[in-house]
Design a protein around this nucleic acid. Structure first.
Lengths: 244, 244
DNA sequence: CCAAAAGTGTTCACCCTACACCCATGT
DNA sequence: ACATGGGTGTAGGGTGAACACTTTTGG
């Protein structure tokens, strides 16, 4: 039997779904869109769409990201492949394999609706995941399809990756202070960190932060130095997440 | 436009490819199969095959693993999803998205050929990757398709995962000595580790190893205690890979 | 006896934590 | 003046690296 006989394999639809994370108001938030059609009409879901015939998976993810948020990857945001979900029952109408991608973005202006979504919003991942985990009466409802599971996997990936990489800077604007970076860690991990030790740690790790020379008082108090993300991708030693 | 109109999205073939790693003769080895058909006829490739209509991705990977090696996952071996590869040009005939999986297995009997492969072999990853990276005259040739890249990603995943998880025990038989476990780390990382400090470290990490009470002299020298893998999945503190 | 592998003890440097303390701004 | 956040100093405990040393087998 030839493995490429067209009758020898079943056809699949392939989509990309996006876990777009940002930090707003001291909370880790994810982008969700309201579904305009059945199934799960009116429910919240992750943004995403079909992969086109001539594009790679990462290109499809970047295109969907631009369509849904206006954000361009490699322009402050980080995009990486997360995992692929292919349960035969995950879409009730047909066999769909979804390649989920993770995007870490700085705090953005209000998202714009795009594609086939009626509207889009930022919501705290705690809200989205507890809604997803439980059936509630009223407005709250779990995310469509298996998107609750996908979001949880993306959040877990982000939480562990900022520990040993410099990815936390992807949540910050181009220039940021040590305190702003610390609040990113605190929001993503949901813990309080010692400001003094944090400062010593990140400024002492070579290649993590590059001072720009400027200062700012936008957080109040004494003027703080501004930094850009340094070139180092891996943190050695890593940031240590406090025990739970 | 309806996103589920059958004419609105291109059809894909979805496959699983397997990076099956083991430690043989002090070297990290991967399973490769000889391709029986065009394209890349006669070249070495990773084992894999089409996902069937009614099975999940992990089920497809476990089925292919059993077909190619006779190995059953969850029976000593570890199986996890690695990444998904979907470049439009990765297969010259049609659009194929491949969900690669990583398998870590103890040293096995000689592999049996299965599925559509003429033959199968274990080869050191160094050999497979340098063959893949360079064009050689004669018998050596790069792996088919983008399998060199997939193998490299799998090796990198294995190298980093044994650092902070107890997965290295998946390379060992059900009962093993501290020295045997150390030789796994040395083969996967390609470094020499201090036997004394390694012993103290792994036996001092609670939940990593469980003594069975037995001893063995199969490695020569003083009898060594035998251990089974403990329940702990995450190592805290992690094993530290020496600087390069 | 000797080689080889398994374990144990000890020392030193470094790093993480905790917290006291000082600095520079806005109101 | 004082509240607020930024930043430095320092002492104590824990851990990893290096290596001397003892233990227990096979040949």
């Amino acid at each position: 039997m030839s493995p490429y006989d067209p009758s020898a394999f079943p056809p699949f639809a392939v989509t990309v779904d996006l876990v777009v994370l940002t930090v707003r108001h001291h909370a880790l938030c994810a982008l969700s869109v309201r579904r305009g059609e059945s199934p799960f009409q009116g429910r919240w879901a992750l943004p995403g769409g079909f992969v086109r015939d001539d594009e790679d998976l990462s290109q499809a993810a970047a295109r969907e990201l631009a369509e849904e948020t206006g954000l361009r990857a490699q322009n402050g945001a980080h995009l990486e492949q997360l995992a692929t979900y292919g349960d035969p029952q995950r879409d009730p109408r047909m066999r769909v394999v979804s390649v989920a991608h993770l995007v870490l973005a700085p705090d953005l202006p209000a998202p714009r609706a795009g594609g086939d979504a009626r509207s889009a919003r930022w919501a705290s991942v705690d809200t989205l995941l507890t809604e997803s985990g439980q059936d509630h009466a009223g407005d709250a409802a779990p995310l469509a399809f298996d998107h609750g599971r996908i979001l949880a996997d993306g959040v877990e990936r982000a939480r562990s990756k900022i520990e040993y990489s410099s990815l936390a800077t992807a949540f910050c604007p181009p220039e940021f202070t040590v305190g702003e970076l610390r609040r990113v860690y605190e929001a993503v991990w949901g813990v309080a960190l010692d400001p003094r030790n944090f400062h010593r740690k990140v400024t002492g790790t070579v290649g993590f932060l590059v001072p720009t020379g400027g200062t700012t008082t936008r957080q109040g108090g004494r003027p703080a130095q501004l930094f850009r993300a340094g070139g180092a991708a891996l943190l050695n030693p890593p940031m240590l997440r406090p025990e739970v």
